[in-house]
């Protein structure tokens, strides 16, 4: 795809995120305890973990929404762990995000057109040009052109998530943090949104940090995968290996815990999981 493939787009090194203590006697809460990984251009790195594992916090730290206490975040060779306000605003055109909940991540009082042109108009792109770009994007994500004049509540969850993906794409970013982008969606729309994400990546060469608790979903999207447990990465490797033949006991338990929809296969997995948890 491009010549710089070996140079990572994003390098996270020894990242620690600590939230300040509540009250004067509390201890600070350490959500991420020394995590390192990298993402190359056009690549998807999956972060798997359960609630409280710190997986979403890493995404928020990349976006400047969580404090970087220790460690470095290098984006295209530049240290962006503590940028100035101005630089942070500039960086938003390079690092974008798709949130989990398509209902609360779109302002209910704004039309889809306003939501999508907003990132452009704050950058002084003429409105006509912005609208043209938005029309193209709506086509890319498979929404009708008249969506521009409609409000978020007129769309289903899956369609709203398409709007959120379009918003993330509008500035032509190089990295998109996908924070559980399909877990709030109904079964029948999950796969279509995943397909859209892959299609967009193949077309634009954007890289994804794909955060999810769902192994199946991570496996479909990720070239490489890291498994998080209590703020640390316990296992990493290429997507297929980690998600189907994991070596760390926690990942194995995670894998066997997620039920499959074949009763006989599920019974075998259950038995295997029980064998696994007995010695602990």
């Amino acid at each position: 795809m491009n010549a710089h493939q070996q140079d990572p787009l994003l390098t996270v090194d020894g990242l620690v995120v600590e939230y300040p203590a509540r009250g004067w006697r509390g201890t600070p809460f350490r959500a991420v305890r020394g995590v390192g990984f990298d993402i190359r251009p056009g690549e998807t790195v999956g972060l798997i973990g359960e609630s409280g594992s710190g997986k979403s916090t890493i995404g928020r730290a990349l976006l400047g929404l969580a404090p970087v206490t220790e460690g470095r975040i290098l984006f295209d060779g530049e240290d962006v762990s503590h940028p100035t306000h101005r630089r942070r605003r500039e960086l938003t055109s390079l690092i974008q995000v798709v949130y989990q909940d398509p209902y609360s991540s779109l302002n209910p009082a704004m039309t889809i057109g306003d939501i999508l042109t907003e990132p452009l108009t704050v950058r002084r792109v003429p409105r006509r040009e912005a609208l043209e770009r938005v029309r193209d994007l709506l086509e890319t994500v498979g929404l009708p052109a008249d969506a521009v004049r409609r409000l978020p509540r007129e769309f289903s969850g899956g369609q709203r998530q398409r709007v959120a993906i379009a918003r993330a794409l509008v500035l032509d970013p190089r990295l998109i943090v996908c924070d559980e982008p399909v877990s709030a969606l109904d079964l029948s729309t999950q796969q279509r949104v995943l397909d859209l994400l892959i299609e967009v990546q193949e077309r634009t060469g954007v890289a994804y940090l794909f955060v999810s608790h769902d192994l199946t979903v991570v496996r479909e999207l990720s070239h490489r995968v890291a498994v998080m447990y209590r703020g640390e990465i316990v296992e990493r490797g290429d997507g297929d290996t980690v998600t189907s033949r994991p070596s760390h006991p926690y990942t194995r338990r995670l894998l066997l815990s997620s039920p499959v929809c074949d009763p006989d296969a599920q019974a075998r997995r259950r038995a295997e999981r029980r064998r696994l948890s007995v010695p602990s």
Binding site: T44, L187, S188, T189, Q190, Q191, R192, L194, I198, D214, L215, T216, V217, R219, E220, L221, S222, H223, G239, D240, T243, S244, C261
Partner: peptide, 8 residues
């Protein structure tokens, strides 16, 4: 529609 989990 259930994601099959075909590895990438």
């Amino acid at each position: 529609a259930i994601p099959r989990g075909n590895p990438r």
